[in-house]
Amino acid sequence: MTNDPFAPLIGQQQAIELLTQAVKQNRVAPAYLFVGPDGVGRSLAARCFIELLFSHDVETKLSASLHNRLLQGNHPDVLWVEPTYQYQGQRLTAKEAAEKGVKRKAPPVIRLEQIRQITEFLGRPPLEASRNVVVLEQAETMAEAAANALLKTLEEPGKATLILIAPTPDAVLPTLVSRCQRIPFYRLDGESLAKVLTQSGHGEVLQNQALLSIAAGSPGSAIASYEQLQAIPPELLEAVKKAPASYRQALELAKAIDKDLDTEAQLWLVDYLQQFYWHKWYRLSIIQQLEKARKSLLCYAQPRLVWECTLLSLYQQCQ
């Protein structure tokens, strides 16, 4: 394997330099805030940084074993925290909820109980490395009680480093931000985006202009959009790519969307259709109508009714 843990991270040279120098100069901060858009490598950077930290220890040598353990999430000195849903007395991550087929109405959050778990984890000394490391994905989802509890931990982290991942500093409690060293992440340029997609086996995404527009320089968003696109029934996808030919067809299509797609998928479909229709017709009124649909769906309006209004409007505008 390569001797550079950051080799898989593309297009984030500033972040790599800041983190590498911190380790080389033995000036690792107690807490970091990785800020930037979703899907540009913040979580990957956290994993690479931990690998560099642990491989820099006298007791630990950079090896395929360390790399694989971090990749699989089973290193005893690393705690990775994700937002969760509360379901039948259990906390489920978004992935676990999807696997169980749990219907999700509200977004997942980082809960107070999870912050208590962090406190308990940091209450013991590291077992193999020179420090414990905690990573909080989507730190912006912490409720105020959870954020205040985390603040106490940040004030006395002990032999530990915490990494908070969020889209912007404004999305996190200011008192937390003030205790973290900020590491910025940026959207990728076209060349870097293409490189990531090609290397990850998603080169076909480069042929879909609507997906690239949705991604806006985020490989993770591009891949997630591609996977979402594959999950939509092909006949439904082909139907929504065209303007309805009649009132009846508009109503039937709205019924099919409501039946086949959950709210999350419908919101994604709005994004996709905005990009697809713009490149097809270049009509602002259609994009605005879809934006109204998004706001209505986010306000928990009846999805079938939202799509009926949207598709009837589309039929009228394309006559």
Rank of each mutant, 00 (worst) to 15 (best):
L150N: 02
E99C: 02
L197P: 00
A143N: 15
L298E: 13
K100W: 07
M1R: 08
D170P: 01
P174D: 04
S130Q: 05
D262A: 12
Q86A: 08
S192E: 15
L297F: 09
Q138V: 05
D189E: 15
E235A: 12
Q181Y: 06
T168Y: 12
A250Y: 13
E204M: 06
A171R: 00
S221Y: 11
Q138T: 13
T141Q: 15
Q249S: 13
L284N: 05
N132L: 10
A250I: 08
F121R: 15
Q199Y: 15
G217F: 04
L236W: 11
L305M: 13
Q138Y: 13
R104T: 11
C309D: 12
G89M: 12
L18N: 01
Y32H: 11
A256T: 08
Y87F: 10
L305V: 14
K242Y: 05
T153P: 01
T84H: 02
F185R: 03
H279F: 08
D258E: 13
P76E: 07
K292Q: 15
V135R: 00
D260T: 12
Y315W: 12
Y186P: 07
P83A: 02
V81D: 01
I183T: 00
G201A: 12
Q90W: 12
T119W: 11
I286C: 01
K280P: 04
Y87N: 14
L151M: 12
A231R: 09
D271H: 06
A106H: 04
F49G: 02
L52M: 08
T161E: 15
L9V: 09
T60Q: 13
I183W: 04
L188W: 09
A15N: 14
R69H: 08
E235P: 05
Q317T: 03
P234W: 03
V133D: 14
A231Q: 10
I50F: 01
E113T: 07
S65F: 07
S221P: 05
E156Q: 04
A243D: 11
Q302F: 09
V102D: 07
A15I: 03
S178I: 02
E59L: 09
L206N: 14
A7Q: 11
A224Y: 12
A254F: 01
L212H: 05
G11H: 01
V23F: 06
G101K: 07
R187Y: 12
L164K: 01
A243H: 13
Y247M: 13
A29G: 08
I50K: 08
K61H: 05
E96S: 02
A245D: 12
D260M: 07
E235N: 08
G220V: 06
N208R: 07
A45P: 03
Y300F: 11
T60M: 15
A45C: 09
P169K: 14
